[in-house]
Computed example of a mutant assay.
Amino acid sequence: MSSSNDEIDRLCRTGEHASTADIAVCSQRNFEQIYAKLNSTIKTSEAELSKGDVDLKADNNPVALPYFENGQRAWVEYRDNQCYAETYSLGEASMRYVTFWDCMARITKERISDLQSTED
């Protein structure tokens, strides 16, 4: 893969002269960008839950944040297992890594959308 960021951006954007390995790297890069957005969205959700938990705790009610954190860990396990299952079902396919990273990106985008819809 090319070394300059501009060349990498062009390769990932156009796919021009890209090998399967290049496409896999671009898919992984795309997932990493989406995952960074997920982490930002989670921090926002956690901050909101923490604020709400203050009142809940003051009224001797169960708090939400620990359950959100448990749910997020379970979601990560679900996403990873789902994507491994999709990928490994292909056998020795040359696009295996592209399939994996595209799956990770797709399910992560869905999670971001779910979290954002609960903020409204």
Rank of each mutant, 00 (worst) to 15 (best):
M1W: 06
S2H: 11
S2N: 12
S4I: 05
N5H: 08
D6W: 00
E7V: 00
I8N: 03
D9N: 15
R10G: 02
R13S: 15
R13A: 15
R13F: 12
G15T: 05
G15F: 00
A18R: 04
A18F: 05
A21F: 14
A21P: 00
A21W: 04
I23D: 10
A24W: 01
V25Q: 15
N30Q: 12
F31N: 09
Y35F: 08
A36F: 03
K37P: 00
L38P: 04
T41G: 01
I42H: 03
T44P: 01
S45W: 02
S45N: 08
A47R: 04
S50D: 10
K51N: 12
K51S: 14
L56C: 11
L56Q: 07
K57S: 15
A58I: 10
A58T: 14
D59C: 07
N60G: 07
N60W: 11
N61V: 08
V63P: 07
A64F: 12
Y67T: 14
Y67E: 12
F68S: 05
F68L: 05
E69G: 08
E69S: 06
N70Y: 03
N70I: 13
Q72R: 00
Q72G: 10
A74E: 12
V76W: 06
R79L: 06
D80H: 01
D80Y: 01
D80S: 10
Q82T: 15
Y84M: 12
A85E: 08
E86D: 13
E86I: 03
S94N: 10
S94P: 05
M95E: 10
M95I: 15
R96K: 13
R96T: 05
R96S: 14
R96A: 14
Y97K: 15
W101Q: 00
W101I: 03
D102I: 02
D102M: 10
D102A: 08
R106E: 12
I107R: 05
T108F: 02
R111A: 11
I112S: 06
D114F: 13
D114T: 13
D114E: 14
L115W: 00
T118A: 09
E119M: 14
E119T: 10
